[in-house]
Simulated scan of single mutants.
Amino acid sequence: MNPSKTYDAALLEQARKLGTSTLYEASGIFTSSVDPLIRTVWPGASVAGPAYPLECSPGDNLSIHIAMERVPRGSVLVISTGSFVAGYWGEVLTVAAEAAGVAGLVIDGGVRDIAALTARRFPVFTRGISMRGTIKASAPSVGEPISFTGTPVAAGDLVVADDDGVLIIPATRVEFTLTQGQARADKEATMMEALTKGQSTLELMGLTSWRNA
């Protein structure tokens, strides 16, 4: 996929508002949800944008520094480290990312300088937190397709992340997933209105046969 792939602001806002749980169910791609241990650093963080994937060697963040000169504005960095938790990312790279127009970070390794990341409200989703620094000696891949905790990621795929987790939607499935996601959200809104009027979930979901089970 072309790393210059972009999505218009309205689509990204729709994806962010629909959220990962709704879009995951709508996507029909059950490998699109990454490892649930990849969590937000600060509550309420959310982001939607085209993926820019890269791979770091364990304990080495050179690929990230290279990516900062190549990443298209508006992208979400998706960084595989082999799940090695160290401080690959901190306040310095956050400032660099903001200047480069990076929308957010998803990493299966670790980050540090949590107070600064929280204060800057930069969306970060990570496996862990570690004060341990990294070396800069190798760069396995930058901008090339990767497997992120078992989920395929190519440049231009749509990343949506929030308090519920991180979702990767293949670029070819974005339009379908958002259409299905909006329909699902509309249906749930109707259901919740009915619930406030006294109907039960058994009734609304056609499960009344279980009342006498």
Rank of each mutant, 00 (worst) to 15 (best):
E188I: 14
V174E: 10
E175L: 09
A194Y: 01
V174F: 02
A185F: 02
T179Q: 11
D186I: 06
L195N: 06
R184T: 15
L178C: 07
E193L: 14
Q199E: 11
E175I: 08
E203I: 01
L178G: 06
D186P: 02
R173T: 12
T190C: 09
L202Q: 08
T177V: 06
K187P: 01
K187W: 12
S200I: 00
A189I: 00
T201D: 10
A189K: 06
A194I: 01
L195I: 10
Q199P: 00
L202A: 11
A189L: 08
K197I: 05
V174I: 02
T179K: 12
T201V: 08
K187E: 15
Q199H: 07
S200G: 10
R173H: 13
Q182V: 07
L202V: 03
Q199G: 04
T190D: 13
T196W: 02
G181I: 00
E175G: 11
Q180T: 09
Q182S: 12
Q182H: 08
M192F: 14
A189T: 12
E175P: 03
F176S: 13
L195T: 07
Q182P: 02
L202R: 05
G198T: 02
G181V: 01
T190V: 15
A185S: 14
K197A: 13
E193S: 14
T179R: 11
